[in-house]
């Protein structure tokens, strides 16, 4: 897994790529939680994620829960079809805020 945190004017984007499995999910968790500590909305760009296992999804769930309790927007951008299937089997596709474009996330922030 590769990751890069990009600071936008009103939010952060965590750009992920590659496989996210048991070996990488602790890093993902740490990146998400440390970014949220800054008090800014967070968009996770998953366009280049080839595989995510349930430890990675658990990190996303914890991030979402942390953001929610701090009243921060937390979104997932460009989820691939296989990842969506993994989310759907546990109904997490209905829980997370999923975005197809960065602009649609910005629109939500502006509401």
């Amino acid at each position: 897994m590769k990751h890069e945190l990009v600071n936008k004017p009103d939010f952060d984007v965590l750009v992920l790529s590659g496989d996210i499995d048991l070996h990488h999910s602790p890093t993902l968790r740490e990146r998400i939680l440390s970014s949220l500590k800054g008090g800014r909305p967070l968009l996770i760009d998953m366009q280049e994620v080839s595989y995510i296992d349930s430890s990675g999804i658990a990190s996303l769930v914890e991030g979402f829960q942390t953001a929610k309790s701090s009243n921060l927007h937390f979104g997932l951008l460009s989820i691939s079809s296989p990842t969506l299937q993994v989310l759907a089997i546990t109904r997490l596709d209905k829980i997370f805020s999923l975005y197809e474009t960065e602009d649609s996330f910005i629109e939500i922030l502006e509401l």
């Binding site: 048991l22 602790p26 968790r29 430890s55 658990a58 990190s59 769930v61 914890e62 546990t90």
Partner: peptide, 12 residues
């Protein structure tokens, strides 16, 4: 894995 991750994975 972190305890929170273990708990969430279990519930998933």
């Amino acid at each position: 894995l972190d305890e929170n991750t273990i708990q969430i994975m279990t519930r998933i």
